[in-house]
């Protein structure tokens, strides 16, 4: 089925954490096609400033209700526009764009940090009925509302916070070796800050566990036309984060 541009009605746009909102759109054409790891490209305002669309990871899709969701942090002008919208509004939305996670293996470990947990939420649902463990990190307890969202999708949740207010004090990478020793994982899916994903990919390589990463990059068109978001592939070819990714096997883009 082709990717498309739709005028999507906002079902709800609610605060789920400090400066973090969940946007649920009625877009049955997108919901029926969406797979975890793909993204929406949303016109946050019918304006010339902001002008460009904003790429937003899909955090869930329900083809029965025809809804597709995303979770975003209000960080700049674009997300501030988005945050101001209500269920009376609709948005121009392209999707589902990009390539999602490849469902692989039987014992997945998810490793996520910050807003990178949004696509992993969708992925966790798709990995059912496999036993799923997740390692998640954030700066502080207030950011870890995610734990509740993953609670009924995962068999074990490992948490780190920078300040130690919840779970282990430190970052996900500190706890990763310990988590890996505790279970016979055969695949790792990771999304979060670049430095975290690089670390996870490195550890996965040491443990010889296949690893998929979801990259984030500034992009304009979202469909492979502008080349704003490309990165160097390990095969010597350029990779477009928007259409070759955003999900890659770690060895495709990281050493």
């Amino acid at each position: 089925m082709p990717k498309m541009v739709v005028e999507a009605r906002i079902v709800r746009n609610t605060e789920i954490g400090v400066n973090v909102k969940e946007l649920v759109l009625y877009a049955p054409e997108i919901a029926v096609q969406a797979v975890p790891g793909q993204f929406l490209h949303v016109r946050v305002a019918d304006s010339y400033y902001p002008l460009l669309r904003r790429p937003l990871s899909i955090s869930g899709a329900d083809h029965i209700t025809g809804t597709v969701s995303t979770i975003y942090r209000v960080v700049g002008q674009g997300t501030a526009c988005l945050a101001a919208l209500t269920s009376k509004d609709s948005v121009d939305c392209m999707g589902p764009l990009g390539n999602g996670f490849v469902i692989h293996g039987q014992r997945p470990l998810l490793v996520g940090g910050g807003m990178g947990l949004a696509p992993l939420l969708f992925l966790a649902g798709a990995l059912c009925p496999r036993p799923i463990e997740i390692l998640m990190g954030g700066r502080t307890k207030e950011e870890m509302f995610w734990a509740d969202m993953f609670h009924n999708k995962c068999d074990a949740i490992h948490i780190t916070t920078d300040d130690g207010t919840l779970g282990s004090c430190g970052v996900t990478l500190d706890l990763l070796p310990e988590v890996l020793k505790s279970g016979a994982f055969d695949v790792i899916y990771t999304c979060g800050p670049r430095i975290m994903m690089e670390g996870v990919a490195k550890v996965a390589k040491t443990y010889n566990i296949p690893c998929q990463i979801s990259l984030e990059e500034y992009m304009a068109c979202g469909i492979g036309g502008c080349l704003s978001c490309t990165c160097a592939g390990k095969d010597g070819l350029r990779k477009k984060v928007c259409t070759d990714g955003p999900v890659f096997w770690a060895q495709e883009v990281m050493s």
């Binding site: 010339y48 400033y49 902001p50 002008l51 460009l52 002008q77 674009g78 500034y218 992009m219 304009a220 502008c226 080349l227 704003s228 978001c229 490309t230 160097a232 350029r238």
Partner: peptide, 25 residues
Amino acid sequence: RSGNQGRRIAETPAGMLNSIGLENP
């Protein structure tokens, strides 16, 4: 050509800056 390093686009009032650097196959 692999184009320019680092961030390649920036939104500006009613426009955008790009520095793709002629990436092409």
